[in-house]
Write a protein that binds this DNA or RNA. Structure first.
Length: 111
DNA sequence: TTAGTGACAATAG
DNA sequence: CCTATTGCCACTA
């Protein structure tokens, strides 16, 4: 029972990413209450088959797309992100970093 | 049990 | 800005 809950929390966290925004793997793990489990999030997405999951909003911490450049998934992710109004340049999302953490909602974005 | 691998992250240079 | 190194967790051979 425990392992399934962590999976559910991670999936719920990914679903909670608003349209037009993105979040890093580590960020998703932290929000799900699982600090240090970024690679678990990655593994889940790599095995995921649910089309309703907004997997394209999950990026590396530096804003780069995690999939191999030029792969079908990479192209699909670029397309979906741009369809949400995000600017993707050389496999990287510009502006629109992973905001909406609790601290940033309280203190505002860091300068 | 150990070694290798992966849709990762943080740090140093 | 970049690459390289190290740490990390979960899985597999």
């Amino acid at each position: 029972m425990g392992a399934d809950d962590t999976v559910i929390r991670i999936l719920a966290t990914i679903r909670a990413i608003p349209r037009g925004e993105v979040a890093g793997y580590g960020e998703v793990a932290r929000r799900a209450g699982l600090p240090g489990r970024a690679r678990l999030v990655a593994r889940l997405l790599s095995h995921n088959d649910d089309p309703s999951l907004p997997w394209h909003r999950v990026l590396r911490s530096d804003g780069r797309i995690a999939l191999p450049e030029g792969s079908p998934g990479f192209l699909e992710q670029c397309q979906r992100l741009r369809a949400e109004g995000l600017r993707v340049e050389n496999g990287r999302v510009i502006g629109a970093k992973a905001r909406a953490t609790f601290d940033e909602q309280v203190w505002g974005p860091p300068d």
